Structure formats: structure tokens, C-alpha cells
Amino acid sequence: MTKDLAMIIKKYLEITKPGIILGNLISVISGFCLASQGSLDLSILILTLLGVSLIIASACVCNNYIDRDIDAIMDRTKNRVLAKGLISLRATLIYAALLGLAGIAILYFSVTMLTAVLASIGFIIYVLVYSLHMKRNSTYATLIGSISGSLPPVIGYCAISKYFDTGALILLTIFSLWQMPHSYAIAIFCFEDYRKAKIPVLPVVKGILVTKKYILLYILAFMFASMMLSFSGYAGYKYLSVSIGLSIWWFTIALSGYRKNVDDRLWARKLFLLSIITITCTSIMISIDFSSSVT
């Protein structure tokens, strides 16, 4: 492989946002394992992961395409491939279309129609509703975006259950609520970037103090939603103990944002990192501490 070809491949890989794909695949596995109840079908798991990966990659490419103007303004995104014009826009759209169609085809023909429908809904919400419109026009964009971000574990679950039930609804709720304080933390430590780009995130529109209050409320809601997975008989009590412990830790760190002379940026980064730890550990516990009482 020549150096030039390697650079081209790297650029096309970068615009799929591999880190986001990986994080979502962890949640897909958690939902899949929860529904499998210890009896894993590896071929279906691999096909589900592949299909979801391609669709998320397509959505991320579309997001890069749509946000290329504001990415060029923001310090943390100004070096992104499309913000610097390193790939043609026509090639980007073709690439996104091929990834998305391939992902939908894999889920539809090799997994279940329901997983393909859920993935399509997630794509539409993230690309057309969130990225193309609400992100630039409403503080509610974060809430809408959280719906698409919460679908991967549901897709993993429905790949086995083959229908949307209470377990799927609880997973949707847990992961939607988690994304709110996670996203608000990003908006606080990147406050100046969002302000410069005129993106109406909650800290810019309502202020950081108001955002801190919402963060506390969403963490509490996340904790109670997480508990419902055990109380409804889907997960065990080891999962419940870990979930409650993580939520209390997360809530405690959120409360520390009210201390005098706190550095909001450093506090928000700490909160963000803890949110990653929380959802990763939650996903792992969902995967390994399911309840055999659910059939």
C-alpha cells in the first residue's frame, strides 16, 4: 500500500468517527446479551454489529458533511477532514449512501426487519432532524439527539427478542437519559466553541448554572431508570448494585460543581469522563448479570 493510498483511507475512516462507533457497539452487545439470556448466537451478533457499525458510520459521515461549516469555526473540530476540505463533497455523499445502504441490507436480510427499521429511525433522527435542523435552532436538539443515540442497545436486544417489549423500552430510557448529562458536560467544557459557532446548546442559551441543575435531575432519572431493569426482572442484583453505586458517584461529582470557585471546564471534563465510565460499566453489567426469569 502506497503512502498516498494509506492517507486517503485514513481520511475516509476518520469521517466515520470510529470512537463513536466503538462506544455504540459496546451498547449493542449489552442489549444483545440481555435478550440472549446466556445463549449467544455469534453469527447473528456479528451481523448485527456489522450492520449497526455501517449505519452509524454513514450517519457520522453525513454529520461531518452537514457540520463542515461550523466545524471550521470550533477549535476542537477545525481540523476535521471535511472542515479542511480534504475530501470532495460528492465523494462524501456517495460514501455515506453506500455505508448506510449496506448496513440496512445486512440488518434487514440477515438479522430482522425490526432491527433495520429501528436503525433507519435512528439514522433519520440523527441526520435529518438533529444534524440538519435542530442542532442549529433549538436547545431541545440534545434531547432529540439522545433518542437516536439510545437505539443501538435496543437494536441489539431486538435482534434476539424480535419484538419491542418492556425490556427494549427500559434500555431506550436508560441510554437516552444517560446522554443528557453526558452531552451537557461536553457543552460546558466546549462552551466558547459553541458560542462562537452560534449553536444554541443549553449552557449558551440558559447559562451554566441552569445546565448544572438539569444535569443533576437527569442523573437521578438515569439512576431510577437503570434500577427498573432489575425491578422488572431483566437484570440481576449485581447489576443493580453497580448501577446504583455508579449513579451515586456520578451525582456526587455533579454536586461538586456547586462549590465556590470551581473551574467549570475542569469539572465538566471530569463529569464527562465519569459518564463514559458509568455507561461502559453499566453496559458490561447488563451483558453479564441478566435475569434468567425473563424468557
Score class of each variant (00 low, 15 high):
K196T: 04
C190E: 11
L171N: 10
S183C: 11
P181L: 12
T173I: 15
L172P: 03
S183M: 07
F175N: 07
I199M: 09
L171R: 05
F191S: 03
A197D: 05
A197I: 05
I186L: 10
M180E: 11
L177V: 13
A197L: 11
E192A: 10
F191P: 00
P200F: 10
Y184G: 01
Y194V: 06
A185T: 00
H182P: 12
R195N: 14
E192M: 08
A185E: 05
G167F: 04
S176C: 15
D193A: 06
T173V: 14
I186M: 01
H182S: 10
F191R: 09
H182A: 12
F189L: 01
I188F: 04
I170T: 08
A187N: 05
L171H: 13
I174L: 14
L177R: 09
Q179P: 09
A197M: 07
M180H: 09
T173F: 12
A197C: 10
F175I: 05
A197K: 11
F189N: 01
Y184L: 13
S176N: 15
P200H: 10
T173G: 02
R195P: 01
T173H: 09
S176Y: 14
P200E: 12
I186K: 04
S176W: 13
E192Y: 10
P181Q: 01
I174F: 10
G167E: 04
S183Y: 05
S176A: 15
E192Q: 14
L172R: 08
A187I: 10
A168C: 05
L177T: 12
S183H: 02
I186D: 01
T173R: 06
A187G: 11
I170L: 14
M180G: 11
L169N: 05
A187Q: 02
F191Q: 00
R195L: 13
A185Q: 07
L172I: 11
A187Y: 02
W178L: 01
I170D: 01
D193P: 06
K196R: 15
W178S: 04
S176R: 04
I199D: 00
I186F: 00
I188V: 15
I188C: 06
A187D: 02
C190S: 14
A168D: 06
H182C: 12
L177I: 13
S183L: 08
Q179W: 03
Y194D: 07
Y184V: 04
L169R: 00
I188T: 13
F175E: 06
L169E: 00
L169P: 00
Y184A: 03
A185R: 06
L172T: 12
I188N: 10
L169Q: 01
K196M: 09
F189Y: 15
C190L: 14
L177G: 10
W178D: 11
M180C: 09
W178I: 12
I174E: 05
Y194I: 06
S183G: 13
K196S: 13
K196C: 04
I170Y: 09
C190I: 00
C190G: 12
C190R: 15
S183N: 13
L169I: 11
L172S: 09
F175M: 09
Y194L: 08
K198W: 01
I188R: 03
D193S: 06
I170K: 03
E192D: 10
R195C: 07
I174T: 12
F175K: 05
I174N: 10
H182Y: 07
F189K: 02
D193L: 04
P200W: 08
T173P: 09
Q179R: 08
K198L: 15
K196F: 00
Y194H: 06
I199P: 11
I188H: 05
L169S: 13
K198C: 13
F191T: 01
A187L: 04
